[in-house]
Amino acid sequence: MNMKYSNLLLRLSAVFGLIGALMGGHMAGSYDYAFRPVHAHVLVVGWLSIFSWAVYYRVFQPSAKVLSALHVYSAVVGVVGLTAGMALNIFNFLPRTVNLIVYIGGGATLLLSFGLFCLLTFTQKSEGR
């Protein structure tokens, strides 16, 4: 199961890394930095955090299976929700209420994911493979 989680998170981080790089390239080429906060969050939580969690699941064998599942799926929903909600909020594609629900919901879900990961590391019994 851990390899499944690792592969899912690794692929998601690769997608977010590509999106972040494309956003950075667009900003540099157009001299329009309106995407800057979204770009930063895409790279920090979408690429870096998700990648580090992929490595965690590749190296460690968490014994708390339900906690691991909650962590991984809340991470996926949270990072997509936060970054999409932030972009929606900045560019006002939808009504403001919808933008804020996606933005705050994604951020709260991602915060939950960070808390679950912290709990997961403190319940870790093995030192790795």
Rank of each mutant, 00 (worst) to 15 (best):
M1F: 09
M3V: 09
Y5P: 01
Y5I: 00
N7W: 05
L8E: 04
L9H: 08
L9Q: 05
L10T: 11
L10E: 00
V15A: 10
L18A: 14
A21H: 01
L22H: 09
M27Y: 11
A28I: 01
G29W: 09
S30N: 12
Y31T: 09
F35T: 00
R36D: 05
A40E: 07
G46R: 10
W47F: 15
W47R: 01
W47M: 15
W47S: 11
W47G: 02
L48M: 15
F51W: 12
S52T: 08
W53M: 13
A54M: 05
V55I: 15
A64F: 05
A64K: 01
V66D: 09
L70I: 03
Y73A: 08
Y73I: 06
Y73S: 12
A75E: 12
A75W: 00
V76I: 15
V76R: 03
T83V: 14
A84M: 11
A84D: 00
A84Y: 11
G85Q: 09
M86Y: 04
A87N: 10
F91S: 03
T97K: 06
N99L: 01
L100H: 13
I101G: 03
Y103F: 15
I104T: 14
G105H: 01
G107R: 05
A108T: 13
L110W: 03
L111M: 13
L111V: 11
S113F: 02
C118H: 09
L120H: 05
F122P: 00
T123G: 11
Q124F: 01
G128E: 10
